[in-house]
Design a protein around this nucleic acid. Structure first.
Length: 557
RNA sequence: GAUUCCGUAGCUCAGCCGGUAGAGCAUUUGCCUUUUAAGCAAAGGGUCAUGGGUUCGAAUCCCAUCGGAAUCACCA
């Protein structure tokens, strides 16, 4: 069903065609200036009565009989146009104003105009239009907010619709684009930084027969020709390390990774990391690189190391604070757990009112204490180093502290933004760590890592000592652009699939029974699949007594 | 998964101790040649998320379902 406004626009479209105007012309429209360029040079342009041509979307229309003002929005901003019977009659037929602009141009339509720059009585730089043309007719009304004295009216604020229809969101809220421009600048900043260091950007498989490199549940798919199971990668770590084995000194990849887990303002099923591996380096060296790189990102994006995030100002200026995990826990809880065994740590955890259970080993307990008492309090970028071995099956054992690995994370604004190790390159130790993971898997840990024989084989051929790093691009972008939710730094955040016009999609049910189902309160396929055939039978019987249970059961096949 | 809140016109929202569905913007028509939330005059537009219950009567009260948001939990 089309709304009255949609019907009106379709009628306008028809009339345009009947009058001989193509509402979607093929020819190039030559744009001479952007709205921004005109505003920036308005004094010169006005003095010279500079002729400009500009294209964009009509965002406001104010008609006063034989003259009118409209706001044109292009990718750079907005500019007012003035169009009247007199302003165009020298170059085009008067009817272009009377019929086309006044009657057949709607808010949201994309138009092209030509004219000279001038200033109105009220002092607004505008274009005095001599030629007007519709370049694309819109069929749906656009929820345009109004603005006066800094107050905004009728903001298009439905988050679901904004995320589902990001194109509409950005038309209506152009500033949304700024976040994404910053995101690309951030990626470019990292890429330039790593390229300047001489590291090679590479691509590795997204479809993997064994999902490795992280602890997470994967998305599973199937390759028909080979009749094998494949997984969307949860990380690319093990492939990049194979490249280090193969002889590259430094490789990195911007990697879309996929994790089949819950969603929140910090989690999207697909997200982006940059991973970097550098041969002959260790995690201490990597800390300096991270500091330098993130400081540079802040400078590239903001020309200062200080970034406003929520109520805090975060300063990325080097050097950042460094704590070992034990030091951090002692600093924030007063407990020194460095010498305690599992029982001792559990006792401390209980004192700190942390819920514990018997499946938690020492490493997990420490992580809980850290996550509860330390992480949320670290606002300024802070290195936490030397993690318990149990939680890091791919990290090298600490050179001097038994039970720990050479690993660091950077915590910023209460969240992890990167993770790095001196990479484990001892193939025998690595095999043992994988076997530990298998034991966890047998105990029901769905996120324990798989044993990857080919990766072990690669290590057996020898991997140089290597430092590795993973940086969460989405979370870093959230901090660098002061966004509260990961959905605000992804153009198209994951959403539940939109209900289609056929609510019973995926089920073989004829239209007459669909009607019956709707009448009985079954609105879509999931509501049907959640019920047993006999439950549905009982309900449908009330509306249509002669229906049979067998008939309904067939829908489930 | 838990708790709380929300779903009324294209957009933003009001109406909710039960009694004929409202406003502004948007849309349509008329007037208006420097307006800027333009103005003035008029008109059209709603299965009040869905299904059921209570009732003489439900947008309003109750139950269930669907969808969304926030916080928490999960995400080493």
């Amino acid at each position: 069903m089309l709304s009255d406004q949609e019907l009106v626009r379709r009628a306008e479209l028809k009339e345009l065609i009947e009058k001989g105007f193509n509402p979607y012309p093929a020819e190039e429209f030559i744009v001479s200036h952007s709205s921004k360029e005109i505003h920036e040079n308005h004094e010169v342009f006005i003095e010279n009565k500079q002729t400009v041509s500009i294209a964009g979307r009509i965002m406001a229309k104010r008609i006063m009989g034989k003259a009118a003002f409209a706001l044109l929005q292009d990718s750079a901003g907005k500019i007012q146009i003035y169009i009247s019977k007199d302003s165009i009659k020298e170059f085009q037929d008067e009817s272009i104003f009377e019929d086309i602009f006044k009657k057949l141009t709607s808010l949201g339509d994309i138009v092209g105009v030509e004219g000279y720059v001038f200033k109105t009585k009220t002092g607004e730089t505008s274009i005095h239009v001599s030629k007007f043309q519709i370049l694309s007719k819109t069929l749906k009304p656009i929820p345009i907010p109004k603005e006066k004295d800094g107050k905004v009216f009728d903001v298009f604020s439905d988050l679901e619709l904004r995320y589902r229809m990001r194109y509409l969101d950005m038309i209506v809220h152009p500033h949304v684009k700024d976040v994404f421009i910053k995101r690309t600048q951030l990626v470019n900043s990292i890429r330039n930084f790593l390229n300047n260091k001489g590291y090679l950007e590479v691509e590795t498989p997204i479809l993997q027969p064994i999902h490795g490199g992280a602890a997470a549940r994967p998305f599973k798919t199937h390759h028909n020709a080979l009749d094998t199971t494949l997984y969307l990668r949860i990380a690319n770590e093990l492939y990049l390390k194979r490249l280090i084995v193969g002889g590259f000194d430094g490789v990195y990849e911007f990697s879309k990774d996929f994790r089949n887990e819950g969603m929140s303002r910090f989690h999207n099923p697909e997200f982006t990391q940059v991973e970097l591996y550098v041969a002959y380096k260790d995690y201490l060296w990597m800390m300096n690189l991270v500091e330098e790189m993130v400081e540079k990102i802040a400078l590239d994006l903001h020309r200062t190391t200080q970034v406003q995030v929520g109520n805090n100002i975060i300063d990325f200026k080097r050097p950042w604070k460094r704590f070992t995990m034990y030091e951090a826990i002692q600093a924030f809880t007063g407990h020194d757990i460095s010498e305690l065994d599992e029982t001792g740590v559990r006792k401390v955890a209980r004192q700190l009112k942390i819920e514990t259970d018997d499946t938690m080993d020492r490493g997990r307990l420490i992580d809980e204490i850290f996550g509860e008492y330390v992480e949320p309090k670290l606002i300024q970028p802070t290195f936490i180093l030397d993690y318990p071995l149990e939680m890091s099956p791919l990290a090298k054992k600490h050179r001097s502290k038994p039970g720990l690995v050479e690993r660091f994370e950077v915590i910023c604004n209460g969240k992890e933004i990167c993770n790095a190790y001196s990479e484990l390159n001892d193939p025998i130790d690595q095999r043992e760590r994988f076997l530990e993971q298998l034991k966890l898997k047998e105990r029901g840990d769905e996120e324990a890592m798989e044993l990857d024989e080919d990766f072990l084989r690669a290590l057996e051929y020898g991997m140089p000592p290597t430092a590795g790093l993973g940086v969460g691009i989405d979370r870093l972008t959230m901090i660098m652009t002061n966004q509260h939710s990961i959905q605000d730094v992804l153009f198209f955040p994951h959403m539940k699939p939109e209900p289609s016009n056929n609510p019973f999609q995926g089920l073989l049910i004829s239209p007459e029974y669909q009607e019956l189902l709707l009448k009985a309160g079954f609105l879509n396929s999931s509501m049907i699949m959640n019920q047993s055939p006999s439950e549905i039978y009982e309900k449908l019987k009330e509306h249509q007594p002669d229906i049979s249970l067998e008939f309904i059961s067939a829908w489930f096949d």
